[in-house]
Design a protein around this nucleic acid. Structure first.
Length: 265
DNA sequence: ATGGTCGGTCCCCGA
């Protein structure tokens, strides 16, 4: 079973790229971030015609997440991250799936960017990360497979940044952000890409500005975190870097995991 | 080559 995440930076602008990538790479479950549209503006007909079940958590102009799946989920278990009733941003979707290896709980996350650090945006990011930790910790008591993927907006270590010194004070690299990310790992979760690629400087995002793509000035900020039960079944993890070189690309590329599990009939 | 980006919205903001 292949599970992928992609920050598409406007799903309406990226519909053709998304459909072509889905057809080429044949994932089973996909979480999308930065839809930048309301649910009724989502290209539902195009995706449903291509065989995808779509759960859309939209928002006007900004944010927005979705969960696509080849088969319907047993249940959509969340359309917002609990813990802050005042949070109106569409950044979280979660569903439970039935597989040959047992229940699989998939989370789709668009974690706040947090810049500028001196504004309320940074504590909002850190608060979101605390809420995410609470959510994950609750599920780790059980033995469902957990796979939480998305745009975490955190470079976990200097290996994940093309120019660590220049980015040291950015919300994506600040010690507080890295500490919070590490506290997720310390629950017992596995950073799937780093587990299988321990030494590579691989990135999932290249800014549109300043020729970042051509100079390989990238960041690794899109991640899959797996519970022990899912990590035991981790067969492969990859970053579809070639998407960044295609016409009208998103500034992020897909990141995927392959688990030793299949759809249950 | 002394600049170099997008996308969505509304006259700029967020990334």
């Amino acid at each position: 079973m292949k599970i992928a995440s992609w920050n598409v930076n406007s799903v309406r602008k990226r519909t053709a790229n998304l459909l072509a990538w889905l057809e080429r790479t044949t994932p089973d479950i996909v979480v999308l971030q930065e839809l930048k549209c309301q649910a009724e503006q989502f290209p539902r007909l195009e995706l449903e015609s291509a065989g995808w079940h779509c759960e859309v958590v939209g928002q006007k102009a900004f944010n927005g997440v979705a969960m696509l799946s080849r088969r319907p989920p047993l249940e959509i278990t969340a359309r917002a991250l609990p813990g802050d009733p005042a949070d109106e941003q569409s950044r979280y979707v979660e569903a439970l799936f039935d597989t040959t290896a047992g229940n699989l709980r998939v989370g789709g996350i668009y974690l706040p960017n947090g810049n500028p650090v001196a504004t309320e945006k940074f504590p909002y990011k850190l608060g979101f990360m605390r809420r995410l930790r609470e959510r994950m910790a609750g599920f780790l008591i059980g033995d469902d497979m957990l796979a939480f993927g998305g745009d975490y907006n955190v470079c976990p270590t200097d290996m994940d940044v093309y120019a660590p010194a220049a980015w040291a004070d950015d919300a994506l690299c600040r010690p507080e952000s890295r500490d919070a990310f590490r506290s997720l790992l310390n629950l017992g979760l596995t950073d799937a890409f780093r587990a299988l690629h321990p030494t590579g400087h691989d990135y999932s995002f290249w800014d549109y500005q300043a020729g970042a793509w051509s100079k390989d000035h990238g960041l690794r900020i899109d991640h899959w975190l797996l519970s022990p039960q899912a990590a035991d079944r981790l067969r492969a993890c990859g970053i579809d870097k070639s998407e960044r070189g295609k016409p009208e690309p998103s500034d992020h590329v897909p990141v995927w995991v392959e688990l030793d599990a299949a759809w249950k009939d």
